[in-house]
Design a binder for these strands. Structure first.
Lengths: 136, 136
DNA sequence: ATATTTGCAAACTATTTGCAGTTGT
DNA sequence: ACAACTGCAAATAGTTTGCAAATAT
């Protein structure tokens, strides 16, 4: 039922290769290598299809456009670097947070985003804004 | 320098009265009582001005449009009800989460959103989807 | 052969901005 | 009086969709 087009493979490969959640435009950019002429509409259509199908997961950070990562990995969180603005996966989780909610509320799930400096941005410039050091 | 217009007061009052973060359209709706003819552009302009000024705080939840709440209260988090989709303030905080980040990363801050059922949605219908019970 | 997929352009939603007229001080 | 503010309409950014042509099976 699902066809294996050049475009779809290029999109999947781009995300798998990135090893971090990508924005639709980053996907377009990376996937155009393997699928010349690839359009942004096709990127969006495939991202959605692959999310429905479970192959991808949508990564939503507060105030940011949706990013996409390879699906399948279990519950985890994300870290956004304030230097290069890239997002990284974080495997740890604070666990059950029912105790934080107001009395009478029932907690079923949670989203957590950490902010700070990634190793690369910390290393490159010792502490001050590291924009220049990251290829972003 | 800042003028005290009918529109601005209506917007501030609407948010203060709501006691929970409101979407721009909810603000427009609520503030139109005190400022007939109020336009959405004016709502956006005032929200931004009041955030800059510190009177309001922007509340960003993953995958949601920005909401606005009264500023000044310290660091806190939010809870979104899966029944009525409303957002509530949560005063508790899990504290320092440096230990969750990958080695070599430095954590400066975090965002946390809890998801579940608010008291009203839990109470009203015992457990099944409570959309009807909440005025949303 | 034919149903799915694609690229393009137009539509859509949320937000911002230019401008001419209105209003607070 | 006059700068700040307002409403409207047009612009913008991100995403979705209709359609005719291209393509995988």
């Amino acid at each position: 039922m699902e066809r294996n087009t050049r475009q779809r493979s290029a999109i999947r490969d781009a995300i798998a290769l990135a090893a971090r959640p990508l924005l639709p435009l980053e996907v377009l950019d990376a996937a155009q290598a393997g699928a010349p002429g690839l359009s942004i509409a096709t990127v969006y259509r495939n991202l959605r299809a692959m999310v429905d199908e479970g192959a991808l997961r949508m990564v939503l950070l507060p105030g940011e456009n949706a990013r996409y990562e390879i699906g399948g990995s279990g519950h985890h969180h994300h870290f956004q670097c304030r230097g290069c603005l890239k997002v990284f996966e974080v495997d740890a989780c604070p666990g059950n947070l029912q105790h934080l909610a107001p009395t009478g509320f029932s907690v079923e799930d949670h989203d957590l985003t950490l902010y700070g400096r990634c190793g690369e941005c910390l290393g490159a410039s010792g502490g001050t804004t590291a924009q220049t050091a990251c290829e972003h």
